[in-house]
Design a protein around this nucleic acid. Structure first.
Lengths: 180, 180
DNA sequence: TTGAACTTTCAGAAAGTAGTGAAAGTTTAT
DNA sequence: ATAAACTTTCACTACTTTCTGAAAGTTCAA
């Protein structure tokens, strides 16, 4: 059914699943859908990966909450067929964004809240200075991430491929700014 | 012992712990150390957070594997006192780098390996094209991350604060390149 | 070299997370 | 309206991770 190399990829996705933010089966399902050209029905997924039908349903639901799969229909067939919701690039972006929401946003809002009132003593003073530092860092990262996501892929690619050139471009920009 | 706001921060770090890549107590310990100006001994940590002495030992070990805590000694005292291994910025960078190692590198090496030999049939052909796509994306990200980490904090900050300016700077660079 | 003061390890308990499969729910064709 | 073809839910089981506390290990002063 699956060649050795394809299978190794799918199993790898399963193992990495929890590190990427989901669980093993969700990782496997995602890997399976990415690596195959055609869409899979729930039963097919359940057969190929040897997991229960119910688990597939949960998994697909989870992948939908990450906006990583889309549903397709075939003519004369009521089943739902699942496939990746976009290119590799788009999927990666979504995972990135979703994780930012889960890993950064709650902290940002806690920090914002805790920074509202005045520190009551030197200990709190210090604590707030650290929270401020964290807040600023996370805000910058969030803003920057939004910025990157609003760029089109080619421009983003140009930027990333720039590599050490980034430094030079910034220096250049500084000089040009001074002249104006 | 801890004021309400400081405690809420520490508990929050605990809750976020698993999302950031560690577990609850490791998160709490890190939060505790970050938010207090003075270093804590293992017993103090165990008392303040109500966790066993053994668990503190495990937690500190874990934090050391992430290069997030450093050990201090006080005169006339054999105990080890733990404190954050650097500024908020540096800690964030370390977490970032460590996670890249755990979340990206293994996949990169699997992909590299799977791309070595020729596809045996159209299905493998397609699979390899996707793996190639993923490989390229991850390579770019890795390379870019290394680039960012080798920049000094001010320059990085300039870059991040640039925001939408990045686009403009790239355009500008393109124009200047053409002239040369 | 002893023992007090500390840290680390680890087996087992507790807590948390994921997976199953049967039952309930939904949709569509007739 | 019914029933076939599907999807979702959920109580329960299986598995995994985390935590504890006692025992073992280490270090150092005397």
């Amino acid at each position: 059914m699956m060649t050795a190399k394809i299978e190794s990829f799918v199993l790898h996705c399963g193992e990495m699943g929890s590190r990427w933010g989901f669980n093993r089966t969700v990782g496997q399902i995602l890997g399976l859908l990415i690596i195959h050209q055609d869409a899979f029905s729930a039963v097919q997924i359940s057969d190929v990966l040897n997991i229960s039908r119910g688990n597939v349903s949960m998994g697909i639901k989870e992948l939908q909450s990450w906006r990583l799969v889309k549903i397709n229909h075939k003519p004369k067939d009521r089943k739902e067929y699942y496939s990746p919701a976009g290119s590799i690039w788009e999927l990666a972006m979504r995972v990135f964004e979703e994780r930012r929401k889960r890993e950064v946003d709650p902290t940002l809002s806690l920090l914002r809240h805790n920074l509202l009132d005045e520190p009551a003593n030197p200990q709190e003073q210090y604590a707030q200075s650290k929270m401020y530092e964290m807040h600023e860092l996370l805000e910058t990262i969030t803003h920057w991430a939004g910025e990157l996501q609003s760029m089109n892929p080619e421009k983003l690619n140009t930027l990333m491929k720039l590599g050490s050139g980034v430094s030079k471009v910034i220096d250049m920009k500084d000089k040009l700014m001074k002249n104006s």
